[in-house]
Structures are given as C-alpha cells and as structure tokens.
Nucleic acid binder design. Structure first.
Lengths: 369, 369
DNA sequence: GCGCTTTCAGAAAGCGCTTTCTGGTAAGAT
DNA sequence: ATCTTACCAGAAAGCGCTTTCTGAAAGCGC
C-alpha cells in the first residue's frame, strides 16, 4: 500500500519534525566500546590513550558527526573558554571596523571565537554588555573606544570589571580610560595632535578651528589639548572649537555651524585651517565645506586623525595623523591574553601617531568665509 | 604596627592573588535562606514565587553581585540560548560592516549576543566557523556574503548545516547560495544590474567594460549576467570583462589591466563606461582611472553596486545600485528567528536594488584610452 | 617467581544551573 | 468538620562534559 518513499508518519498527520538530539560524548563512547572518560581523553589528547582505542574513538566520532557541547566543556573544565568579548561603539564606523579586523585576525590565529557587541554609543549598553560577557565567562573582554569621563559610569564599569578580573578574567582597552586600571593600548593622541598642529603651523597657518566631539570622551579632550599645546608653542591660540557627534554627520553639522558663525561675525579673523578630531568627522566636514562652495585646500585646509582607509580615496586625500589601527586591535588581544606578570599591574602599550600630509592641506588661502 | 590600610598579606609575600570563585546560585539561595530551585524561579520569573521570598532572593543576588553562568544555563535548559552566530568575509569591508550593523541592532533589541566571525575570504574557514558555532549551540547562524559555486565546498557546508538544522538550529543567508536550502535574504542582483545597464545605455553609452570578481561567487555571476541582459535588450554586447579580487585593491588592479589592454589594442573600440560589480571595487577603479589621467565622468563613466556609505563621499559621487544593507541584516536575523511554518521550507526575502544616478556617470566622452 | 612501580581505562563525582516530581499547607467545596 | 483542589517551596535528577580517584594489568629488578 505504502509508496516506496513513504514516511513512517500517518499521511496528513500534522506534526513538527522532531528535533534530532545532539550526538553526545556518551554516544561516541558507546559506539567505540569505551568509557566516556576514555573518549574524552582520546578526543582531547589530555592523556595517553592506547593507539587502537584512540583510533576507534575518532572513527566513532566521525561516523556519528560528533560535535562537543562547548557549554558542557566550559562548565566541566572551569576556565577553558574559547571566546573573547569585543565591545565597540559602532561596527559600521571604519575606525572600529579596522581595529576589529585586527582583533578578529589575531583571534582566528589562536582558535578563539569573538563575541562582538556594538553599543551604538550608549554608555549604559556598554556596561550591560560587559555583564553579558561575564555571564558567558569570556576569557577576555576588549573595550575598544574612548572611555567616558563620567563618575557614575566609571564607577559602574569598575564594579563590573573588578570582580571579573578578580575571578581570572582579562581586560584590555584601546584608548585611555581614566579610572580603569587595566591593560591599555594607548594611541598617543596628545603628542600626535601636537605634532599635527606644528606641521600645520609650518605650512603657514595661524588661525585654526577645531571640530571636536563629545567632551566627555578622553580621546576628544586629549586630542584637543594636544592640538592646543602644539599651537601654543608657536604662540598661537585656538580661535574656535565646535563640538559635534562623533560621526560623519556630526562632522558635517559641526562644520556647518562653524561656517554659520563665520558668516555671522564677518569681522572676526577667519580660520584658514580646520582640524577635525577624527577622520570620520573630517569626511562630513569636507562635504559641508564643499557644499558651502569652499575649495579644499585652496580656501581652507582640513585635517583629521586616525587615517581610516577611506580618507585616501577622498579628493583631496585627507591630511591626518595615522594610527596603525589593525595592529592596535592585535595588540589589544595579545595584551589581554598574555601571561600576567607577578606584579600584575596594568600594562600600557603606547602607539605613536604619524602625521601624514596629503592634499587636503596647503598654504593658507582665503579662509572660512 | 600595621598601617591603616594594610593588606592582610604579609609584606613582601610574593603570591599570586587567588582567583575569587564565582558567585553561584547556591550561594545566593543560601544567603536568601531558600532553596536553589526557588532562587532560580525567583530570578527568572519562570514560576510564581511569593513576594517576600522573591524580594529576599533579588536582594541577596544584588548583594553578592551574582551573575548567572550562561554555560550552566544553556546546558540545563537545553535550547535557551542567547547567542547567534554571524559569519562574514571581512568585517572591515564596508559592505559587511553595514549589514552587520543591522544584525547587531536587531540582536540588541532581542537581548541576543552576536558571535562575529570573519573568514578573510577563505572558504574553508567559513565551514570551520559553522562548526564552532554549532559547538556553541548558537540559536541561529547567519551567513553573510555570496555563496561559493564549488561542489566540494557546497557539500561540506551542507554537511555542517544539515545536522545543525535538524537539531533545531536556524540558518539564514544573505545572497544566493546555490545548494543551500535555507532562509535567504536575496538582493536582486540580476535585475538590479540589468536596470543599471538600461540606465547607462539611456545615457548614451554603447561600449562597456565590466570589472568583475571571482567567478565562483554567485553575486558576481548574477550581476554580470544581469548586466549583459540589460545591454542585450539594446542589442549591445559586452566588450570586456576583467576579473579582480573582491576588494578595493582588486578593483584598482582590474582597472589597471583594463587600461593596459586598451593601450595595447588601440584599434579596438574603447569602452566609454565601466561597471564595477561592487562599490568597493569601484573605489579602487576610480583611483586607477584617475591615476591614469582619465577624468570621471568626462572621459569615462564609472558605476558600482551596493551603495555603501562611503561612495557618497567620493568625488565624483558614485552612480550605483542601492541596496538597503542595514535592513538586509535585520531581515536576515528576523528570518532566522521567526517561527518556522508548518511547511518548513526555505523562505526567500527578495530586496530590490535601486539605481542611483550620481556624478560618476554622464554622457559618453572620450572613453578609456 | 615475588613484590615493586608504572601505565592506562573505567567509575564516579562534580561544574552551576533548570525542571520535574513530591509533599506540605491553605483555601474552597460539601 | 472533612475532603478536594490549588498553590508553592524544596528535593533531586539530570544537562554533557572533564577530571580526580581507583584499580587491574603489565613491566621491572632482585
């Protein structure tokens, strides 16, 4: 009666296909005719198992398509965790994308899995992600991106991190975090910005404007301070600082406001050079300047910071302070995973920024109208 | 003798700080004076616990800084897994970054953690990541990026995915995968490329070159075929197809070779319009064209595909076929997590591309010299 | 050949949770 | 006042592994 390929189900019997149970180590052991203990040892190579048994176990595992349950492994073997957590502000921001790329590569080399969390720039979310990563017993947590200079936030973050570290977790951050005593990959924002300022002064500029970001970010305050220092060496003050969001649109908006204020106060000496504290903001600023009919660099020079890959594609290509972003990501994970010395104090890897002069800067011309 | 803030350690006693054990549910239960079962129920709200007990449990958990062990939870409660896996070719590629961003946002809304793996365009790595994600018992696995049209690879991937799905795992892919019977977010590469071709023909172009990618990628063959179709409708053939890597540098290199062949065969009719199958390649191509002294679009028009954010910042801004990248990421995770219907067949969400005409294309001018 | 150490496989005890199952108590029905 | 029924809290059984601990068999020197 039945057709050749009939299923065992009664026809029309509406049922969900039963989920096939996972193949367990016990099943493998049974298939191989050994104890689960031996199967475990054979598969992991944790102890010597005689050849013929080991082969039988491996064969059985292959035949059954055995995949160990990572949760059970993590639970049973305490700390043998294969995952690291990576928290950044925004994956689609080229700055974080570049650093993440370095982290991913280094993780892949070590056979680690990366849990990547994007905070969408909400500080609270950053803390809740740390908590989730703690629950996952991640081997290390990497915080990419500027710290917040905010007492409450710092305290809350500390409260998450401190017990994590005490329980053997590793933490590394990229960028300066004021209160966090953790391993740090620290771009020399201050000296980099100062060097940039000197270079720009060297080009002949005397009147500057800065497009800065949220002041509670250490990165912003460091770069701003460094830039001021560099100018001060030449006895130059900073005419204007316009803050914007740390995004392309934030840069656009900040530049627009800068232009507006220049138009409103025509008497004021107009900046001939604009420094955006990040390349991403500079991209927006370039669009805004161009939109206003200003030529870069003839009318106004523009410089950024970070050297994200895309700024080379702009026309004009952007002058910036180059940071080895991918390598910084690699450094961060290496730092977190490295044996902690007896002293167990926070290590700091400083990375220098290098001023890269491209065509977005030139000798002073007309200035912001 | 001791100073006020002295530590209990003997001075100079060199010892590693003992790793503090994690706070367990049992500890919380003991602290609250209830059984672990009650503590579990109170914390998870899985069953009604009388008010005063629930409060005691929560208070105890707070006091102790309890963080549940996600591994133990996953193990005990079978399928209650809070992580999804996301596999892409390269995090630092803006195309994947944009899609990932959508995935991350949707995941955050659902309280899920994302494990992001980057294959660095090595097919084998993609398969091994699926295996690791299986071990993690990820609730869903998302494959972002073109499938490989390669028998061996398809078979291997299928062998990983099939048992995963049978065991209740969910899979969704972005881009067409030939053999995988899984939920798919499918950009209409073919019709999009055809529409682009028609538009370019409408601008007056008759001689085209295509900068294509690795032919084993479905995305490449679909876009190429669509473009050919669009041209064919106007009775136009495709002069040249130059393949390159799926990267910015691949686009640069392909464009360079195109220019070289044009120089070598001066008699041949020169293309007046170049279509790069992805924006990322187009970015490289633009640099190469400019490097060769060609003006875009006066000498040659250039178009891409995807509409990654950065192409708007180029000058000239790039004509392209816009895909809703972030939304595609959201679609993918939504698809994977949605209840499977009784039929349990692969669902396909088609997303249309929209031709966006920008300044990198114009009426035909000099052509590739 | 006898006691010794060494080698290696199995038994069993967890790892930290969730979830039946069980049973005591209070509320409602008779 | 007695018998159900309902409600909740605790006991206990796992989830799928790893890793002692235990003990049998084999290897060694005398």
């Amino acid at each position: 009666m039945n057709q050749g390929r009939a299923t065992p189900d009664r026809p029309g019997a509406r049922r969900t296909v039963a989920a096939t149970a996972h193949v367990t180590l016990d099943a493998v052991a049974r298939e191989a005719g050994v104890s689960p203990a031996t199967a475990s040892r054979a598969l992991n190579g944790t102890a010597t198992v005689r050849d013929h048994l080991r082969q039988r176990v491996h064969a059985a595992a292959d035949r059954l398509g055995y995949i160990p349950n990572a949760h059970a492994q993590a639970l049973a073997s305490a700390a043998n965790n294969r995952t690291v957590g990576l928290i950044c502000h925004d994956v689609s921001d080229p700055y974080f994308a570049a650093i993440s790329s370095g982290v991913m590569r280094a993780a892949a080399e070590r056979g680690l899995l990366v849990m990547l969390a994007s905070t969408f720039r909400e500080p609270a979310r950053e803390i809740s992600y740390v908590s989730m990563l703690r629950a996952q017993r991640a081997r290390a947590i990497l915080l990419i991106g500027s710290g917040f200079q905010d007492r409450a936030w710092e305290r809350a973050m500390d409260a998450e991190l401190e017990p994590y570290v005490r329980a053997g977790g590793r933490v590394a951050v990229v960028s300066r975090h004021r209160s966090l005593r953790v391993d740090t990959v620290q771009p020399e924002n201050r000296t980099g910005a100062a060097a940039l300022a000197r270079t720009l002064v060297g080009l002949g500029h005397r009147r500057f404007a800065v497009l800065s970001g949220p002041p509670e970010l250490t990165t912003v305050s460091d770069r701003l301070a460094g830039f001021r220092e560099g100018l001060a060496e030449a006895g130059i003050g900073l005419d204007q600082v316009v803050a914007g969001a740390f995004t392309r649109d934030g840069g656009y908006e900040a530049a627009r406001r800068l232009l507006l204020s220049a138009a409103r106060a025509p008497s004021r000496a107009r900046p001939t050079c604009v420094f955006a504290v990040t390349d991403v903001m500079a991209v927006g600023a370039l669009a805004a300047l161009r939109r206003a009919g200003l030529r870069v660099p003839e009318d106004v020079s523009l410089a950024g910071f970070d050297d994200i890959p895309l700024v080379r594609e702009l026309s004009p290509p952007l002058t910036t302070v180059a940071l080895p972003l991918t390598q910084m990501g690699e450094n961060a994970i290496a730092l977190a995973l490295r044996e902690l010395g007896a002293a167990r104090r926070a290590r700091v890897v400083r990375v220098e920024g290098e001023v890269v002069l491209r065509d977005s800067t030139g000798a002073p011309g007309g200035g912001v109208r």
